[in-house]
């Protein structure tokens, strides 16, 4: 297994996350896409950490931080989602267009 293989896996995850973000109408699935992309980034960090880093601790720490931030993000995201759902009885992003030109 080479570095490129891991990078490609992470790329596939990232692209899948992009598709989810771009195509889904449900906020929850968009959150799923974001998580996918965060994981893709984490894989990158871990792979580079393993194959190229001078100090292998750094990558792990960053991945841990990402996991922590993801948790925080999910907490906020879900609470917003709940509020939005109560206000609109819908979490369809195509309906949430107050910023349209």
């Amino acid at each position: 297994m080479s570095l490129s293989a891991f990078l490609l896996v992470s790329l596939v995850l990232f692209s899948a996350g992009l598709v989810a973000i771009m195509s889904r109408r449900n906020l929850v699935t968009i959150l799923v896409g974001i998580e996918l992309m965060l994981n893709a980034a984490s894989i990158n960090f871990m792979a580079f950490n393993y194959y190229t880093a001078v100090d292998p601790v750094v990558g792990q720490i960053i991945v841990l931080v990402i996991i922590g931030l993801a948790a925080a993000e999910v907490a906020i995201f879900l609470s917003i989602l709940m509020v939005l759902y109560r206000a609109r009885h819908d979490v369809d992003v195509e309906e949430i267009r107050e910023i349209r030109g």
């Binding site: 195509s23 267009r97 910023i99």
Partner: peptide, 18 residues
């Protein structure tokens, strides 16, 4: 017409960014 590009669809923005 171009204002319609500012659709408010965040997803379209993301797509163009991609």
């Amino acid at each position: 017409w171009t204002a319609r590009l500012q659709s408010g669809w965040v997803q379209a923005y993301i797509a163009s960014g991609v």
